[in-house]
């Protein structure tokens, strides 16, 4: 019995791959079932988003070209001039939204980066505690924290008093970002609130990407004659780019549509486009205008996001 001890390999009688031995039907059935699995898993989640996210968007698109009133009902009349009228009436609020949220995003990056860097490379055994302190404000209501800023920046607050004493507010008022001896109800207050509220959205992605950077790279760069600043500019910062992009988007997008900060910390002069959409929808009941404004805002945001996504790739963000 040679087979028992002398195993032998060789090509199959018919090595032609075009005529493989038939597979058991059970295997084919199992393979078919496996192909169906992802679709079954996706079904509920995707259906939810299609019905409650995509469908409303489509509906909103049709609303934006309707005319009519609440009493008579609205009809699709392809009234595209709603877009133009809405933009014409509210373009200052658009500009303010983009400018305020843009400045807030840059500020978030500027002041969030040192903290993210500290947590990633310098915090040592404090790392988890500091991370908790960054995340914890999330759990106090957004509104309550914004109201706290109302207290901090109130006219009679010690901070504003101090800023007046050192005449800093004279300088900022001259620059047009505050008014007189007040901070409340000025662009400064709104930007300050926006920066504060969206700062964690910047810090966390930054930290995530910095954490992946091997600390030895700093030593390697130093070994290769890079000063600490050059090391940061040529090694650390480029490696943290995914975090920068993600953080920028996560800050800019919600900030641009936000109206809580503008409403609570600003005056009518600092109204952002979110306020307009909200009041058109909930108070004026002019749904076509609210829809058109939403779409204009969405288009602007998407255009900005696309530019970013092209650079970073969606896989990194999703």
């Amino acid at each position: 019995m040679s087979a028992a001890t002398a195993p032998v390999a060789g090509p199959a009688p018919l090595p032609d791959p075009a005529a493989p031995a038939p597979l058991p039907a059970a295997l084919k059935k199992a393979a078919r079932r496996r192909r169906a699995v992802p679709y079954l898993l996706l079904l509920a989640g995707v259906a939810w988003l299609l019905v409650f996210f995509v469908a409303p968007m489509v509906y909103q698109a049709s609303t934006s070209v309707q005319t009519g009133s609440l009493d008579e009902g609205f009809k699709v009349t392809w009234h595209f001039s709603t877009y133009w009228d809405a933009f014409d009436a509210y373009w200052p609020q658009f500009v303010k939204s983009l400018v305020y949220s843009g400045i807030a995003t840059v500020l978030c990056l500027g002041i969030g980066y040192p903290l993210a860097y500290t947590i990633a490379f310098r915090a040592g055994r404090w790392r988890n505690l500091v991370l908790i302190l960054v995340i914890a404000p999330f759990f106090t209501s957004f509104l309550i924290r914004t109201l706290a800023w109302e207290t901090i920046l109130a006219d009679e607050s010690p901070l504003v008093h101090f800023l007046n004493t050192i005449h800093l507010l004279d300088v900022t008022s001259a620059l047009g970002i505050t008014e007189g001896d007040r901070v409340m109800a000025t662009p400064l207050a709104v930007v300050c609130g926006l920066t504060y509220n969206f700062l964690p959205f910047m810090i966390l992605p930054l930290y995530t990407s910095l954490e992946r950077v091997d600390g030895r790279l700093h030593e390697a760069a130093g070994d290769l004659y890079a000063t600490p600043f050059t090391t940061f500019r040529k090694v650390t910062f480029p490696l943290s780019m995914p975090g920068v992009v993600a953080g920028t988007l996560l800050t800019f997008i919600p900030a641009s549509g936000d109206y809580i900060n503008a409403e609570l910390l600003g005056s009518t002069n600092q109204k952002m486009i979110g306020s307009v959409i909200q009041s058109q929808f909930l108070r004026v009941l002019d749904y076509p205008t609210a829809a058109a404004l939403s779409f204009i805002l969405m288009a602007v945001i998407l255009a900005i996001v696309m530019v970013y996504v092209r650079r970073a790739g969606t896989e990194e963000l999703v």
């Binding site: 087979a3 028992a4 001890t5 195993p7 032998v8 390999a9 060789g10 090509p11 199959a12 018919l14 090595p15 791959p17 493989p20 031995a21």
Partner: peptide, 8 residues
């Protein structure tokens, strides 16, 4: 590739 193999 199509392969025959026997392991005792």
């Amino acid at each position: 590739h199509p392969l025959d193999l026997t392991v005792p």
